[in-house]
Design a protein around this nucleic acid. Sequence first.
RNA 1: GUGGGCGUAGCUCAAUUGGUUAGAGCACCUGGUUGUGGCCCAGGAGGCCGUGGGUUCAAGUCCCAUCGCUCACCCCA
Length: 417
Amino acid sequence: MKIQALKGFKDIVPGEVELWQHLEKVAREVFARFHFAEIRLPILEETELFARSIGEATDIVEKEMYTFTDKKITMRPEATASLLRAYIEHGLYAQKPVQRLFTIGPMFRHERPQKGRLRQFHQMDIEVLGSENPLVDAELMAMGAMLLKELGITVSLELNSLGCPDCRPAYRAQLVAYITERLQHLCSDCKRRSTTNPLRVLDCKVPACREQMAEAPSIQDHLCGPCRDHFQRVQAGLAQLDVPFSLNKFMVRGLDYYCRTTFEFITSDLGAQAAVAAGGRYDGLVETLGGPKNTPGIGFAMGMERLVLLLQQQQQAVSEGPGIDLFIAGIGEQGVEKAFGLAHAIRAVRSVAMDHDGKSLKSQMKQADKAGARFVLIIGDTELTSGLGILRNMRTEEQQNVELSSSALIDCLKTNK
RNA sequence: GUGGGCGUAGCUCAAUUGGUUAGAGCACCUGGUUGUGGCCCAGGAGGCCGUGGGUUCAAGUCCCAUCGCUCACCCCA
């Protein structure tokens, strides 16, 4: 019986890992331009943290978390809760009125895997804490749009507002009334949702349900004054920054803590997993987790597996690795021994590969070619006797004799490109 | 938890109505070139046909079970 990776867990092997490195590099650059600071967080937290933030009754907390029940600890299913815990624990709210933070890493959910959806998945999570200014909402979405654009990924941005504890209950009641009237025309899932999570009926995929819900009351028409004002200023901010978006009154959130602004970057190229990034505002969450009162927050997460799939799919090929500076081909026992020492010395300043197994020169030349070596240094008996190695430029095919000393070789590699 | 599709070489796949020794491309190794890469040519290695049972003179092929992968549903950043 052979051992293989767990269901829903994936290795990222050479050849694919370059795409991840590219993604992270571009992301870090963009985050820095928008003045976000990185925070690194643990993967395990007290189960209670997620129960309180995500909501006791959600499927995530009820059955999709990796929890060590005897210790009451859980592998994080998302990053926001952990980030806020750290924010509160270290009193970051006291250091600066507004904290702009991001974190990158693996998350875990015990779901059945499908395309773009694994049990260990990776997210880049970006949060702004301490501001409820709608310009911040717009700026955050603009940053997401800029990053995706620089990655060469085409998506659309959808926007909605979920209101706040002042206006949502009244809307919700009205929606429930609307749903109840049409209950017999809805799918069995929606019948269940009508009591468990009525907002979810809005984004059901069953055509009959969509039809029934087409004329459903829109949250956007039922916002209270402050929420309506906030929502409008978010849109004005996006317009000013030339970030295209469309309003989607059917877009809702599964997690309890969201309020007001909610948004998703959507693609049609990933099957059922349309959202490559999603987020929203959570003004009450910091307080819920024991932080200072009235600490607003907004954030979003980008699904890295999905971004990588799109990078592969949309042919945003990252150039092959730069290859190696030098391959040292030693012939015979003495040659290999000399190569071994020289390789180590030159590695202080240049990348060097070699074959330790005494393969034929032809074989070593092939290896050098495959490694993308720019130069090959050949050391055989003749070269050992003369003290001069043959340095071959693999691109121009020119060869020259170079003294077999690390300093001479380093000089030579520096002057020849 | 539910439903569909698929399991043959490292990878992508083929194998007629069940019929001799399961093939190809890519990748790998060796040689053609005493010590020089790519291209070409020749050769080589690599398979419990996912696993177990059944039907049959005969199973990669048909049946059952099981495991795995995958897509979708539920749920969801």
